[in-house]
């Protein structure tokens, strides 16, 4: 389960991926190579093609052109069981039919390991996944009774329990409060430090700047920028892409990048 022997080979690669919907290319000739031990953030406005690209990487959507390669092998050549032990995916929506308990939902992430030696560690892995996503205290609660943020963290715990080297996360922080956002992104960083290749769709640009090794800015299906946060998160580019003026500022004390929208002062005048 180490990345040894894979040095130089991208864990996950999109080559010239095109997805057309209703005559329009929602993903347009995207090349992306993701390496082990890194966090890659996909950012961009609504409809930029972030989630579609992630679906292509996960194998949910077959590209109209181009291909996805996992560990040097085209996605289509993978057996579903092997693939499930190699990459995990956190979808945007978290639905579970019937009243499964949180611990039971997280345990479902161990399904690909059934009948293998790793199965012996199921309980420890599940407990660890629940602890790292802060759902341990909810273990005996049923999924439908959880709040949005709790559901999101349980779903994330499930992908953690799957223990894969490639992790695709579609807006893992969307429903979370600030504290949990930071904690989850810390956890994502930790996964990468352990050698996983992580691709994460984020809306919060400052979060991407703080936790990603590499930021890919998408707009209208195309890659507009790709590189380290300081390079990819360019104020002019972002302002153009988001159709709104944005400032990229260094944090006064830490120098960390902060991306803030420029706001008119009118709104403050109506306040007493």
């Amino acid at each position: 389960m180490t990345a040894a022997g894979l040095v130089g080979v991208a864990a996950l690669e999109a080559r010239g991926v095109v997805v057309r919907r209703g005559g329009r290319a929602v993903v347009d000739r995207v090349d992306l190579a993701v390496h082990a031990g890194t966090v890659t953030a996909l950012v961009g406005p609504n409809g930029a093609g972030k989630s579609t690209l992630l679906s292509v990487l996960a194998g949910d959507v077959r590209p109209d052109a181009g291909e996805v390669v996992v560990d040097g092998r085209p996605l289509g050549d993978w057996k579903s069981g092997d693939l499930a032990r190699t990459r995990a995916m956190l979808p945007q929506e978290h639905r579970v039919a019937f009243g499964f308990r949180v611990a039971e939902v997280v345990e479902l992430g161990r399904a690909p390991w059934r009948g293998r030696p790793e199965e012996d560690h199921d309980e420890a892995v599940v407990l660890e996944a629940m602890a790292s996503t802060d759902v341990g205290h909810l273990a005996a609660r049923t999924f439908p009774t959880l709040s949005g943020g709790e559901k999101a963290r349980t779903a994330l715990a499930r992908t953690r329990a799957q223990a894969t080297r490639i992790v695709l996360l579609d807006e893992p922080t969307a429903a979370l409060d600030v504290g949990h956002q930071e904690a989850i992104m810390e956890e994502v960083r930790q996964e990468a430090a352990e050698g996983d290749a992580v691709v994460v769709v984020l809306h919060d640009l400052s979060l991407a700047a703080a936790y990603a090794d590499r930021v890919v800015v998408l707009d209208e299906g195309r890659v507009r920028a790709d590189g380290p946060p300081a390079q990819a998160l360019d104020a002019d580019l972002l302002s153009a892409v988001y159709r709104h003026p944005l400032d990229v500022l260094p944090h006064p004390h830490t120098g960390a990048l902060l991306i803030v929208p420029r706001r008119s002062q009118v709104s403050s005048e109506v306040l007493p």
Partner: peptide
Amino acid sequence: ALGDRSARHLG
């Protein structure tokens, strides 16, 4: 029960 997509991702 996790939905078709997640079930597929789990093999």
